[in-house]
Amino acid sequence: MTLSREFKVGLFIGCTAIIIVLALLYLAAGKGVFENMHAFTLSSKSGDGFTEGMPVVFSGFNIGKVQSLELNDKGVVLIKIKIPDRHVKWIRSDSAFILYRPLIGSARIVVNTTNLNNPPLDEKKIPEVIIVNDINDAIARIEPALERVTQIADNVERLTSNLSDPKGDLHRILSNAGKITTNLASKKSLVEMVVSDEESVKALNESLKKLKDITTTVDRILTKVDKMADKTDSEIYGKDGALPQVNVILKDIVGKLQKLDKTIDNINKISSDTSEGTKDLHILRSDIDDTLKTVEDAVKKLDAIIGLKKVPEFKVP
């Protein structure tokens, strides 16, 4: 049976139009266009940082958005948020509303509910939004520290390339420094930390894992330094030699990481002040401590080795 041209065209237009409409309806339904919406009103002393359409987030998921902003007679900013029916269960009487303004990504209102068994939030009640501004200051403090860490990583790389006559092992060892560079350059992930939601904490944890990798690499360097001791000359072990430089650099890294530690302390303080929802930052803290300790151990080991070789008892081959 051959279908007429009219039928084929009709079928094409009809089917495609139906598919498109269904897809759009599916998206609309998924976005809660056809759902019952619950309106809650929040208050804030300042409207700074709030925008209409701003997402309301619970556990990293968008559960609603800011519908409108108003200024009442008392000069208090009223923020009306709309939450669809299926997400209203996350808003309880003890829910805390925090305005997060990360350096990267858009600002959002984060909902933290400690006990989901508490009664639902009364729509007439107007809770106050906690504004976390200090987080931006923390970022500002992290930034220069990270810059310095990156600079050090660059130095390590330059050192590698400066050694024109690599004499085998040393070149290979120092080429491992390239890996350090790559790992330390994961600055972006650290910056993402300031987003302060679970997603970013995960990213930060990944960065810390990378730092552990650095330690492993340093360890490997040390083992190899030990092995090559017999083959090297004073150019490497001398006052301006390569290994003392490596030592200085690694010490520097530890120094900078300690500065970073202080910054993390700040973030911890902020998060404990505002809500309990960011407990992950504590885990983060212990991770950083671990990393620092391992790096420090590695440097001490390096120091010991270099200390042993300082006595010029080896002759130039």
């Binding site: 041209r5 009219e6 084929k8 065209v9 094409f12 237009i13």
Partner: peptide
């Protein structure tokens, strides 16, 4: 119009 839609969309589908 019908022929054009046929040649442009249905035939190429």
């Amino acid at each position: 119009l019908l022929n054009q839609i046929y040649f442009t969309s249905v035939q190429i589908l």
